[in-house]
Design a protein around this nucleic acid. Structure first.
Lengths: 216, 216, 216, 216
DNA sequence: CATGAATGAGCTTTCATTCAT
DNA sequence: AATGAATGAAAGCTCATTCAT
């Protein structure tokens, strides 16, 4: 699983770049953006520091590149999980399953996205925000479709759907962090917990049984 | 909202300490633990750096003190919100409302707790973990009580209740961050969204209508 | 043996000053001039820092005052030891005995004089140098007297006497440090070792039996 | 004699390291451990501070490295001076001569060993202690050999020999400092003074003529 | 393609010293 | 006679970044 190759000579650029990014994701994920040093990343990647700069220009750009790569990988995994033909709840289930599986298999990548990127200022947070919106849109679509499946006459207001999607995605993110930190929680279990928690509620809402805010 | 008082001279220690902690929470919350410099904190507090060290000893201790103070304040706010006599759903509603109100009024404190403290290593994360467990216990109690209210015969398994509490608290944390970042989302609205999302689902579960994981 | 008096109020100046100097000698002797902090000294003396400055002006002056006091005490002890009427070797013996006794009883004072004062630059070293010269003069007088006692015709050249006195005093200083650091070496034993080492040699020299430097 | 080379660029590591150590010995020897600043050392060495840290890690390690280098150099000089074949007094003479010559030629190194290293705490003092013991052992051997040469029947007790060696080495150390501080004292003269002072006395002792401690 | 050598700038921390009471 | 409150200045150390080869 180690990325280091003991300073092998003369590799093609693409390979070297991958090694560096692997090392960077690992280091950023574990240490945090500020605490990670370029020295450490270069050493872990098995290259000299100037080479890191030659290929990736600066710490900021390297971090951004890590965010982009990991965001792309996560999105692809979720998209690959959800099979378009199925009913909405099955699609959601598969999407969540893929999501928890991927975050469990790439804990450092997930730490970069969920913890570090959002913690260290505007430019990085924006990068993650874009990916998050793509996931929210995906979930929003599913909920909307399910609502329409259930009954044509009384659709859920768009604004409510959006809020629910946000809550669901937020709960998923939180559970992913929790599952990664807590030994013994499988991706399957996390997904089941979240489906149980959310789907039953969503179904209720689709049937018009919403919880009423008390007046005072 | 600024804490700086333009270098007023000779204040009693307690006052100065409060000013410093206010400045520290603001700086840590916005910049992050590593990126925040003691210089910046001292300047924002309107004192010289040595005074910060004289009163608060080190960056680590200052950060820890911030975490403790903000955690205590949040817990107190939530506890003060939930009135013991009401039915469980009303208690939860009031608790969530207090939670979202407090996090909206103290965005930097919330950032310190939710983002920074958990991102920068064991000793700090532990500090927050303790507070979080108190909140989870509170919610767990409410869900359990509600389940017992609804029907004496078929109680929810403890393990399920715990998972649901984790999911609910996670969703709340996530929504708080989202509400803080997204203009136009009020504490009331965030609380309503989460109640709708979660309570209806919980009710369903209490009635034995859980979502079934598909086999493959 | 502790100097601290737990911050008693309103003492006459002379007493307070003594407490501070005691604390300073102890701290300087154990930590060294630079490593000793005014905070530590004030605390050990049981007073506030501004009072130390009010009475003793600055760290430099405080250190100088310590050197002077300890040098004076050591000189007085040696002078009080040597009784003028006796033969030269007995006088030297008593002087050395007093010297080793005093340095053993005031290890911090001796450390200030022998180690710290000579280690930290011109102004302090000069202070000690003066006292050392007084001791060297005392010893030079004894050796000269003994030489004249032994034989009127062939006196030792002054330059040789001076060199011998330097060597003797140097050996004494070195032995004092050694005796202070090595448990089980009494003042009596140190003095006896040095008398044995030096007096027999001096006697030899007085009788014209000097060691001849080889030519090449 | 200055080590600075006016910020010459790109030297091999070994050379730079030597320059830094030279600068460090000079600075530590003159200022003392605490008063010497890494800035000053770096400037004197003609490099930037980070380079000093890159090569020598910390002030502590740099100081320790200086102690070791200077101790080694002094030991080597003394050993090279004493030729094994000669009679004991001639060996001692040559050893002392080499000792005073070396300390006169490397006053800063000698100051580091004799003054600074012993003044600033356990870890450093230990370093010097080891070297000193080697010299004491060397002298002890010479005195013992001389005693056996002089007469087979009545050997000096080991304990006395050890005490004498301590006194002799102590006197030598003290004289070296004195000679370095006093202009016009050559290494030759210092060595002659000490031989005169000590050897004649040792000879006396070997012949059983020891000085008798008076009773009271 | 790759690196050993080097640094400007900044950080946390400490300390001698003073002021206002 | 005595102190709580406060600071300017510097020190040790680290890091992102760049040359010259």
């Amino acid at each position: 699983m180690s990325t280091s190759t003991g300073r092998n000579k003369r590799m093609p650029r693409a390979v070297r770049e991958r090694q560096m990014m692997d090392a960077a994701v690992q280091t950023f994920g574990q240490r945090g953006y500020r605490a990670a040093s370029m020295d450490e990343i270069a050493e872990l990647a098995g290259v000299s520091k100037p080479l890191v700069y030659l290929y990736l220009n600066s710490k900021d750009e390297l971090f951004t590149a890590c965010i982009r790569r990991e965001a792309r990988a996560l999105l692809d995994a979720v998209r690959a999980g959800a099979e378009p033909g199925l009913p909405a709840d099955r699609q959601l289930w598969h999407g969540l399953h893929a999501f928890f599986t991927h975050t469990a298999e790439h804990p450092d990548g997930w730490a970069v996205l969920y913890r570090q990127a959002r913690t260290h200022g505007e430019p990085f947070a924006t990068e993650v925000h874009a990916m998050r919106e793509e996931i929210v849109a995906f979930v929003t679509g599913l909920i909307g479709a399910a609502a329409r499946e259930a009954h044509r006459d009384r659709a859920l207001p768009d604004r409510d759907v959006a809020g629910l999607a946000q809550a669901l995605v937020g709960a998923a993110e939180s559970l992913a962090g929790w599952a990664n930190e807590t030994p013994g929680i499988s991706a399957h279990e996390a997904a089941a917990t979240l489906m149980n928690f959310s789907w039953a509620g969503l179904e209720n809402l689709m049937n018009g049984r919403s919880w009423q805010v008390p007046s005072p």
